[in-house]
């Protein structure tokens, strides 16, 4: 581009004209479906609107309601419970499977493809499938437990088990995706580093702890960030499997937002939940990065 001979003015104008006509649809799309919704989301925070009667000014009503709303607080808390189980589980299983796949193996593509299979399946299907797997009486998992001599567990109907059960399911669905990320990271660890640390007499564990794990830090940060964002988007799983119950223990923020908009027709409040959610995601991801960064420096 730099060494291009300077074109004459008329051809430059022609280029501009074609560039504008090529990008005009996109520019219009951005205005209508990206810029407008962002600004209107902020405006909706200060409105009451049921979509039937004209919107009215709400002042700080929505924000005040949000701060004191126990249901919203519960949904946020539920998400943290979900993340507390999901994040460590996701990192350990993804890293474990990636390390196994990183060795010289027969049928490597086959193993990789099986781990990735649930990633391509719709979340709605996975929710319905696991609903069946978790079923207390005829579910596959309780049947397996019975074969091993265990007693059935009410996976989705016990308030203290339901959210962990969903966290395990989401880990199962997404792990193949994170295996690919870790595998890509493992390719970048130089052979010379491995050889050097082996010559120093490091055990396999020391090699993992002092070479592999630190070298994979960028991938781990990515895994934590993406699964956190994903965790805050939890919707179809509780919607299909538990309806947010038992005792609202699986109620998610997006499910609450959806209910406010779709069932209660409270557009202002639903948008307020959306804005709050975006802020919470940003804050949590920033905090995680700081913590992981300082832990590594120590």
């Amino acid at each position: 581009m730099m060494q291009r001979p300077r074109p004459e003015r008329s051809s430059m104008r022609a280029e501009q004209r074609s560039a504008w006509s090529l990008t005009a649809p996109y520019a219009a799309f951005l205005l209508a479906f990206a810029a407008y919704p962002v600004f209107f989301a902020l405006a909706l925070v200060f409105m009451h609107w049921d979509l039937v009667t004209p919107p009215s000014f709400a002042g700080g009503d929505n924000v005040r309601l949000l701060v004191t709303d126990a249901r919203f607080g519960r949904a946020v808390l539920n998400t943290f419970v979900f993340l507390a189980i999901h994040l460590p589980l996701q990192i350990v299983t993804a890293l474990g499977l990636a390390l196994a796949l990183n060795r010289r193996l027969a049928f490597r593509a086959f193993w990789r493809a099986t781990f990735f299979l649930p990633v391509v399946i719709s979340g709605a299907v996975v929710a319905i499938l696991w609903n069946a797997l978790y079923a207390t009486d005829v579910g596959l998992i309780n049947n397996l437990l019975a074969k091993l001599g265990g007693s059935p567990i009410p996976w989705l109907t016990d308030p203290s088990i339901a959210m962990p059960a969903i966290a395990v399911m989401v880990t199962w669905k997404n792990v193949g995706f994170y295996v690919i990320i870790y595998l890509a990271g493992l390719q970048y660890i130089p052979q010379s580093c491995r050889e050097a640390i082996e010559l120093d007499g490091a055990t396999a564990w020391q090699r993992f702890r002092h070479l592999t794990l630190p070298m994979l830090l960028p991938q781990t940060i990515l895994v934590v960030t993406l699964s956190t964002i994903n965790g805050f988007q939890l919707f179809i799983e509780p919607y299909v499997m538990t309806g947010g119950g038992p005792l609202r223990r699986t109620y998610s923020v997006v499910l609450y937002m959806y209910t406010n908009a779709f069932s209660y027709q409270k557009m202002g409040y639903a948008a307020t939940i959306g804005v709050a959610l975006a802020l919470i995601i940003g804050a949590v991801v920033a905090a995680q990065r700081r913590v992981i960064g300082t832990a590594e420096a120590a």
């Binding site: 209508a32 479906f33 990206a34 407008y36 919704p37 962002v38 209107f40 989301a41 909706l44 609107w49 979509l51 805050f232 988007q233 923020v253 997006v254 937002m257 908009a261 557009m267 639903a270 948008a271 959306g274 804005v275 959610l277 975006a278």
Partner: peptide, 11 residues
């Protein structure tokens, strides 16, 4: 996406 979901819906 959660930020723009509701305003997009009202649109």
């Amino acid at each position: 996406g959660q930020l723009t979901l509701i305003p997009l819906y009202t649109l």
